[in-house]
Design a protein around this nucleic acid. Structure first.
Lengths: 218, 218
DNA sequence: CCCCAAATAGGCCCGCCGACCCTTCCCTGC
DNA sequence: GCAGGGAAGGGTCGGCGGGCCTATTTGGGG
């Protein structure tokens, strides 16, 4: 079997070179390219067709999540592993939703990284235990629990969510609840972070899927 | 029975005075107040509690449609008639959706206006024949025709609409269809005007109600 | 052959949305 | 009594969404 080809996308040169060195001593993998920005990562990925991409989340030009979204549409088989400085749940969730399959911290044990690369190259997915737990709760629609995350919302937030799902803009929601538009935005921000969403259209779909609103009558 | 109390909301003083004169000679109605802006219309309506409001659509401060939206929530029984200089289908549709119940042109026969006022005060609705036809087609979910307006969309527009309904942002839609974001916006604008919608969340609801997209699986 | 509709694209502009900061007040649990 | 969380409110700021207008190309129907 061929070596696992790896593309390293990170704006820190030292990190890229370090990874290259680390993988050089491994017999079953090799770094085939480097990229310092999101766009570079896209170009390199298209020409090199690597098995695995180590993708920094924060990069100039185009962030790792966006790059991942694009790449996963173009090349569904590529395994993308996010490498971040610190544990930022929100970014990780968005990355996984965009199509990423792995996630490791930059200060992780090198062995961890190697295992992640091999796992992802094998079509599997490797997540840290903390993330894995949250991710499973979020992505799995296990039959026992209908609404895995909705019950984390406060009554007020639930109220706001249903109004979002009915298509009201923030101003109308404010009017409807007789509160300030700023407060509405705060509630909405809380909803987003609790449900791991990023905009109101996603919130609509979430609410509709969870059956929080009826869709038939006008 | 009491006289029908009428509030005239229009930024043209001459028009207001003219209407007042016209109604003075009618035995069953009287002008109880005037407003020159949308906000004034709101205040006057709240204190005077008129039976009918003649509402100009274009007004400073707050347009007639917005004022209507607010008023119909606060006082559902008020009958609002839109008075416009010319036939602007879009505004009329939005006005009717906001809760207006009548619509007449400023150059209409005075008799028409009087009939409209009496009809609306009576809880009915009076629309010109052109508008009535389109409005019925839009609002009525007659069983024979599932999608009254969707078939006016071009194939491309329909494609864009389904992507909107799936929660994609304009940039993602552009990527998905391999076209410019500007073009996406054009399609979306066309969709809005053909379906009488005003933003993407309304489009989502429309598409979902019409069954253009499935909502269950992720 | 000409005209129209559809699709694509660009520019300009503004308002809303959402991110990320805060503060205050109240209620409940420890 | 104090901590903590929920609710409400405020400010700033970048970016996206949508209004509006123009232009080009292509294909089909009169």
């Amino acid at each position: 079997m061929d070596k696992i080809s790896v593309l390293v996308a990170d704006d820190h040169t030292l990190f890229r070179k370090g990874v290259r060195k680390m993988l050089e001593v491994e017999e079953d993998m090799q770094v085939v390219g480097e990229a310092a920005t999101g766009r570079e990562a896209l170009e390199q990925a298209r020409t090199l067709m690597p098995d695995v991409i180590l993708m920094d989340i924060k990069m100039p030009d185009l962030d790792g999540v966006e790059a991942t979204r694009t790449l996963c549409q173009e090349m569904p088989h590529v395994g993308i592993i996010f490498v971040t400085m610190f544990q930022d749940d929100e970014f990780v969730f968005r990355g996984l939703q965009a199509g990423g399959r792995g996630y490791i911290l930059k200060d992780a044990d090198p062995e961890t990284m190697l295992r992640a690369i091999r796992a992802v190259a094998n079509g599997e997915s490797l997540l840290g235990p903390t993330i894995a737990q949250k991710a499973l709760r979020h992505f799995s629609a296990l039959p026992g629990k209908q609404a895995p995350l909705v019950d984390e919302l406060t009554p007020r937030e639930l109220e706001v969510l249903t109004l979002i799902a009915e298509g009201l803009c923030n101003k109308d929601i404010a009017r409807e609840l007789s509160i300030s538009e700023k407060t509405v935005k705060n509630h909405i921000n809380n909803i987003f972070s609790k449900l791991h969403l990023y905009d109101r259209t996603q919130a609509m779909l979430y609410a509709i899927r969870q059956g929080l609103v009826k869709v038939d009558e006008t």
